[in-house]
Design a protein around this nucleic acid. Structure first.
Lengths: 103, 103
DNA sequence: TTCAATGGTTCACTAGTTCTGAACTATTGA
DNA sequence: TCAATAGTTCAGAACTAGTGAACCATTGAA
């Protein structure tokens, strides 16, 4: 049984968040989550269909460990949700600002 | 003779800027430049005194290539200045937001 | 004009990270 | 029970970061 690692709010670091968002693919994943405004499975939020599963899984692990995403198991899928409140509490305006910018 | 590479404003990427700022040492360098509000030599802006010269040089190269810093030669020193206008034009509010946050 | 000091860069090495296919686990439906 | 689906883990190849050593350019002094 897989156990997911999610840092508590006060252990989310700016460096971790910026590094996680510094990858165009991961930024697109986050944008998908924001646009949908609800849980998405990993494949559903995948930035491009031809990405290797292991790569996608790795990106989600990085997003999880940075504190950007919370993953929970639901049946055969893993449901991912943006930790918007935590990020906003810890780093006000950061997410909104970055998501509003051109790439 | 060393020639510095500086991307033009419209080639500065969000991913590059975020990756450059995702390193705590580089973020501290940028904060030094903002606080001083003028040119600084590399050693002057060094985040900690015991950092290897080559490491420091490498950090400045990354900041330069990301478009965050402009370096020019002045005598024996290299003078570094934050490309605040370029960054603000390309990514409004990003710099201000990130610099206002706790690390 | 030579020599040493200063301020950085470049090179080569090591250590760590990322991407990927292959093998695996867990759940579901037939 | 078996196959399909959704992800994870592992291992190897390719890439990136940190560092000491060697180097280059400028300056100031003898």
């Amino acid at each position: 049984m897989v156990q997911f690692v999610h840092p508590p709010r006060d252990e989310i670091t700016l460096a971790g968040v910026l590094a996680a968002l510094a990858d165009p693919m991961r930024l697109r994943i986050i944008k998908s989550l924001v646009a949908k405004d609800e849980c998405m499975s990993c494949t559903e939020a995948a930035p491009c269909p031809d990405m290797a599963k292991s790569t996608l899984s790795n990106h989600f692990r990085i997003l999880r460990e940075a504190g950007l995403v919370r993953t929970s198991k639901q049946g055969v899928e893993h449901r991912n949700v943006l930790r918007e409140e935590d990020i906003n509490a810890r780093f006000p305006k950061l997410l909104k600002t970055i998501l509003s910018l051109p790439e």
